[in-house]
């Protein structure tokens, strides 16, 4: 929750001094999120059971719920793209929550992390569309009427290019704003002021991760379904 202040004292600064790599904090916290997720995955893979218990139960609830949601929205095609969607959701969620640990910073509070993920989403849904429809994918950009097709081509290009920008800025603005509010409240009233905000921000960070997931799902749905 250092919120990108000029001289943040986060663990990453100390680790960076030890390693001498000169990397910015958000890279370390993204690595931390990756380590957490890989460890969870390795631990769970070793002892999968038919009757889930403990952590397997938690993950099955989350991933099963998301899969149902995806299939209800996209249809059966959604199962093919679901691994990408789910990894994006869980990755963003873990990165957001890391920002709530004192001395850590959310990797998503930096615009570069979000831009990388939004570009991945942009390339992925276009790749899925081209793979599915071949050259006919261009019909998705043409609109319903043949006479207006050149105009629609430009309009759709603009609105498709605006998608990664708005994905990036939405996640960045919300998470960075929450981190700054946490620091300011900590300055005003050290523990008492911050504690209630934690509950609000746990909710807020979940919502932001879910919005990113849901928009990715809507874009994938648009490229999978038939052009109108």
């Amino acid at each position: 929750m250092s919120a990108g202040l000029p001289h943040p004292l986060t663990y990453s600064v100390i680790i960076d001094e030890k390693l001498g790599l000169g990397l910015p904090p958000h890279v370390y916290y993204m690595w931390l999120a990756m380590i957490i997720l890989f460890t969870c995955a390795m631990m769970l893979r070793g002892r999968l059971q038919l009757v889930p218990g403990g952590m397997q139960n938690v993950f099955e609830t989350v991933i099963g719920g998301l899969e149902d949601f995806t299939v209800a929205n996209i249809g059966e095609d959604g199962r093919k793209v679901f691994p990408f969607l789910c990894s994006i959701f869980i990755f963003i969620l873990v990165m957001n929550y890391i920002g709530l640990i004192p001395g850590c910073d959310a990797a998503t509070a930096n615009v570069n992390t979000n831009a990388a993920m939004a570009l991945c989403v942009f390339l992925y849904y276009n790749y899925i569309g081209i793979k599915r429809w071949g050259f006919g994918y261009i019909k998705h950009f043409m609109g319903p009427m043949a006479a207006l097709a050149p105009l629609m081509l430009v309009l759709e290009t603009v609105s498709h290019l605006a998608r990664p920008v708005s994905l990036t800025l939405r996640l960045f603005g919300n998470i960075r704003g929450e981190e700054i509010v946490l620091v300011l409240l900590f300055v005003l009233a050290p523990v008492l002021g911050t504690l209630p905000m934690y509950f609000l921000f746990i909710l807020g960070k979940t919502i932001q991760a879910f919005i990113f997931f849901m928009l990715t799902m809507i874009y994938l749905k648009g490229s999978l379904e038939h052009a109108h």
Binding site: S159, S166, L215
Partner: peptide
């Protein structure tokens, strides 16, 4: 999600 899409399309 609606508002930001409007703004970013304008800027793009």
């Amino acid at each position: 999600t609606i508002g930001l899409q409007l703004v970013s399309a304008t800027f793009i």
